[in-house]
């Protein structure tokens, strides 16, 4: 019994080491989104290219799709456009949520939809266009409701409009294969 007591500090030390070591290699940005397994929040936002078209969550029902939060100002988003376009060719439905930068009324020029549309069209021509259409989140209200912390971020939404997966950062072949593809397969089955 006394001999066993002798090993208690060693065991405690080893447990602490394992705990701290696992913390060393964990990603502090990796955390579960609060939107997971919830329906998309209510919204009524205009299409980026055809502003007279208003999108609501109900119009997005019926098919599993990726909701990709992006902006032309964001280099990582531009970098993932190529791979997302490949995914679109494989039959994955991708909807863009355009994350517009906030503007300071004192310093910035007022919002110009024409200029933004041109900018977007040019970027999509250069890097590939993965989107069925883009929803313009000018005030980032839907992004706030979804708990978006920045761009790029991607949500997997099922046919009933329920968020099933969430990824912060770009989508590359590795991320798609390891994380999103299995979930996409799972939720796109009828």
């Amino acid at each position: 019994m006394r001999k066993l007591f002798f090993y208690v500090p060693l065991v405690l030390f080893l447990l602490l080491t394992v705990f701290l070591l696992s913390g060393l290699f964990s990603d502090p940005r990796e955390r579960e989104s609060a939107s997971l397994n919830r329906a998309l929040p209510e919204f009524a936002l205009a299409d980026l290219m055809q502003p007279q078209q208003i999108w609501t969550p109900q119009q997005l029902h019926g098919e599993t799709f990726l909701l990709n939060v992006w902006g032309t100002w964001c280099p990582t988003c531009n970098a993932e456009l190529g791979y997302l376009t490949e995914l679109r060719k494989q039959g994955v439905k991708i909807v863009g949520l355009y994350y517009e930068l906030p503007r300071d009324p004192t310093f910035d020029a007022p919002f110009n939809l024409k200029a933004l549309q041109q900018d977007v069209a040019q970027k999509l021509q250069q890097n590939g266009d993965p989107y069925q259409f883009n929803i313009l989140d000018l005030e980032r209200s839907l992004s706030l409701d979804l708990g978006v912390s920045g761009a790029p971020e991607t949500f997997l939404v099922d046919a009933d409009g329920i968020v099933r997966a969430h990824h912060i950062g770009d989508i590359n072949p590795q991320v798609w294969r390891a994380k999103l593809a299995p979930l996409y397969q799972q939720w796109s089955q009828p």
């Binding site: 994350y99 930068l101 906030p102 980032r140 912390s149 920045g150």
Partner: peptide, 16 residues
Amino acid sequence: QNQNIADSNAIVAVDM
């Protein structure tokens, strides 16, 4: 991370 929203100028902090 490790900044409060009063301290940060990230877009999301501005919105929050």
